[in-house]
Nucleic acid binder design. Structure first.
Length: 510
RNA sequence: GCCGCCUUAGCUCAGUUGGUUAGAGCGCUAGAAUGUGGAUCUAGAGGUCCCCUGUUCAAUUCAGGGAGGCGGUACCA
């Protein structure tokens, strides 16, 4: 006999990097988002929203040589053959929005936005192909105060989310410092410069030794994969490492940089340094001064020359929020987690559209990634929400069912989650089992006996569970009915008043 | 993209030096117990052993290829 042919059904599965979200996760996300929103609102930012799809060229992913601009973004073609892409961040759409509404917008334009973004790339720990970001930006704000404000707001946000000071650090840098120093030590080739910057960015990940290898000959990872280095000579490598070890700070007001030595003072160059380098240093020092004076010490908002960030569009200040404790996954493995948020100054982004220079600064919190970290750490409030009060179905005649439904509605009217059992009511035990699994605080029982006596049984499921812990045999268990008590009903319209009172009391206690 | 590890029941995982009927725990369903959650006992359902090709009398097991998962690394707006 031939094998029974199974119908060719589609496999229930998801594309990698995407995931369904359970109610506990959604509630936790909503809580996080609400906390972030409160901080941004308090700083005087207003919400705006842009759509998921943008024209690909508006987002800066225009790749004329490829058929599909799919490198890193999800793209599709409209009926008129124009390429559109799912947004890969919230900054590029904001720039588009500002350019498009330039004349109506009051600068400085302080806005925030939250939502899903999409990246067509390999997912990793805490990295998804659909994830949530929460951004804040000041457009038309040229001063270093705007950058300082961003850093302070980032710190406030971390703390609002329950991450204590010391468990995170905001690292700040000015890209022009690195640019100037690289120039001074003779790294002028653009490609090599990029490799060097990427190597520097890896300091927190691989440590000094790792960066040394990446700046020089190259590095092998633990799986044996090799990364080509920047090919600098030993003198250049040492100079960069010296830079990374430096700190700058103020002692007494703007103007005095204490421990920073310029390339010239270090003897790396003959003439005067680029003005841009000293400007950049001055900005950093000013930022740190602002932050310090407002209660954010230099180990909280920290100048760090190894902070590089996106190479393409940041034009000056860059900042990054990082967790300082280890993150492990559900298997207990320690995981390379990376930053949970970052941003910087992008003075060129709006002028892509308008031709007019528009200074802007902003940052983005990786909500999804931060949530993964907090979940793995058990710092997230993922306690199951209490289920609904379940009104059990004992009698199936129309009149009784209407009475059960009435109880449910009255509970709902006073704001208590409640439902009538909607499964097969044949087996009564199933109904209580259902209530138990839904994490219900209580079940309400009214059979013909209770009906005749004008009472209901309330079963306090939480107290019952506790009381029952000692009971071993089922006979006693059934006889004692742990957690259960009787309530007399009144008459007429207000007959459920007492019942509702009792349920309220019970929910409060549990 | 590159490198490593992994894939057997709904879940976590055993196992087969290539052999007839592939197991456990948990979960699920039913019963003991038709008006009482848990614990207990009994029974039951549930498998393309990731897929394809090859070697073989015989492949879940071996070989080659592919897919998916996890981790590392590269890239990252």
């Amino acid at each position: 006999m031939a094998k029974k042919q199974k119908p060719n059904r589609p496999k229930a599965r998801l594309p990698r990097g995407f995931g369904d979200r359970q109610s506990a996760e959604i509630r936790a996300t909503n809580q996080m988002v609400e906390k972030i929103r409160e901080v941004y609102e308090r700083y005087g930012f207003d919400p705006i929203e842009t759509p998921f799809l943008e024209f690909t060229d508006a987002m800066g992913k225009f790749l004329p040589d490829t058929d599909r601009p799919n490198a890193g973004v999800f793209s599709l073609q409209d009926e008129d053959d124009q390429w559109m892409s799912l947004r890969y961040d919230l900054t590029a759409p904001l720039a588009r929005h500002v350019a498009q509404n330039f004349n109506q917008i009051q600068m400085p334009y302080r806005t925030y936005r939250q939502g899903w973004v999409f990246r067509n790339e390999k997912p990793g720990p805490g990295r998804f192909r659909q994830f949530m970001q929460f951004d804040a930006d000041s457009v038309g704000a040229p001063g270093v105060q705007a950058d300082a404000e961003m850093c302070m707001m980032m710190a406030d946000t971390m703390e609002a989310l329950g991450i204590k000071r010391g468990d995170y650090v905001i690292r700040v840098n000015n890209r022009k410092v690195l640019d100037g120093v690289l120039e001074a030590i003779g790294v002028t080739d653009e490609a090599q410069k990029l490799t060097v910057l990427r190597a520097i960015d890896k300091l927190d990940k691989f440590g000094v030794e790792g960066v040394k290898l990446l700046l020089g000959a190259g590095r092998e990872d633990e799986s044996g994969d090799r990364t080509e280095g920047a090919g600098l000579d030993e003198g250049q490598v040492l100079k960069i490492l010296a830079l990374l070890a430096m700190t700058i700070s103020f002692k007494s007001g703007p103007g005095t940089i204490q421990t920073w030595k310029t390339p010239k003072e270090l003897g790396w160059i003959e003439g005067d340094e680029e003005e841009s380098v000293s400007n950049a240093l001055y900005q950093l020092a000013t930022l740190q001064s602002y932050c310090k004076d407002n209660g954010y010490p230099s180990d909280c908002i920290k100048i760090d020359f190894s902070c590089v960030r996106g190479l393409e569009y940041y034009t000056g200040m860059v900042y990054e929020a990082e967790l300082t404790f280890d993150v492990t996954n559900e298997k207990g493995q320690k995981v390379q987690f990376g930053s949970v948020g970052g941003g910087g100054r992008y003075d060129g982004l709006v002028s892509r559209f308008t031709g007019q220079p528009v200074p802007a600064t902003g940052f983005s919190i990786g909500v999804s990634r931060l949530m993964t970290a907090l979940t793995n750490l058990g710092k997230l409030d993922d306690a199951e929400m209490p289920g609904p009060v379940v009104v059990c179905v004992m009698d199936k005649d129309v009149e009784s069912l209407a009475e059960y439904q009435k109880m449910v509605q009255e509970l709902r009217d006073v704001g208590i989650r409640a439902e009538m059992y909607q499964g097969n009511p044949k087996n009564f035990g199933k109904q209580l089992q259902y209530a138990d699994k839904r994490n219900s605080p209580a079940a309400i029982i009214q059979g013909s006996d209770e009906r005749a006596r004008k009472v209901v049984q309330i079963k306090d499921l939480v107290a019952g569970k506790k009381a029952a812990a000692a009971i071993k045999d089922n006979e006693t268990w059934k006889a004692e009915r742990p957690g259960q008590f009787e309530v007399a009903l009144g008459e007429g319209k207000s007959r459920f008043v007492k019942l509702i009172e009792e349920i309220k009391k019970l929910i409060k206690v549990n």
